[in-house]
């Protein structure tokens, strides 16, 4: 199978999975729903519509034979990996530690050669944003190693 058909295939599997899940949803008694529709009906209707469109898209691909998308360089995949790292650092240490590490590593990954510039960006940006949100907008951040020190 050609790579170009991978997108319609994934979209179709997703739509079928949504229909399967929607069919498991509870139904309401007639006296509540009345002449209207059940909670499952609308998502199923949407997915059927989507499957029809996916069919048209596949036909378009078959007729036009589009070029497969070239694979991105390490900057893109590395950035996605940094999102995962941010999740782990936020959950297990502190959101601001996560932001600092991700900004620093992202700057380096994207080609910043001056380590001190990356370090300053990673320190000043979250610092300023924290001050703005905490002092001006009065928003409390999630507890973690740093926030526990700050909030007490």
């Amino acid at each position: 199978m050609k790579n170009i058909y991978l997108v319609p295939l994934i979209l179709s599997i997703f739509s079928l999975a949504v229909i399967a899940i929607a069919l498991q949803l509870d139904t309401s008694p007639e006296m509540i729903v009345g002449d209207s529709m059940q909670a499952r009906s609308f998502p199923i209707f949407l997915m059927i519509l989507k499957l029809i469109l996916i069919g048209i898209l596949t036909f378009q691909f078959y007729k036009n034979n589009p070029k497969p998308v070239a694979l991105e360089k390490y900057h893109t995949w590395g950035s996605m990996f940094l999102f995962l790292l941010f999740y782990l650092l936020t959950v297990y240490t502190d959101m601001f530690i996560g932001i600092f590490v991700v900004i620093f590593l992202m700057s380096i990954l994207w080609g910043e050669r001056r380590v001190w510039v990356a370090f300053l960006t990673a320190t000043i940006t979250p610092g300023l944003v924290f001050l703005l949100f905490d002092y001006v907008l009065k928003i409390r951040f999630p507890r973690g190693m740093l926030m526990n020190l700050y909030y007490g």
Binding site: S107, W110, T121
Partner: peptide, 13 residues
Amino acid sequence: QILWPIVFALSVI
């Protein structure tokens, strides 16, 4: 390499 890491911070916060 400076701009988009800042956008990341602004986005998550």
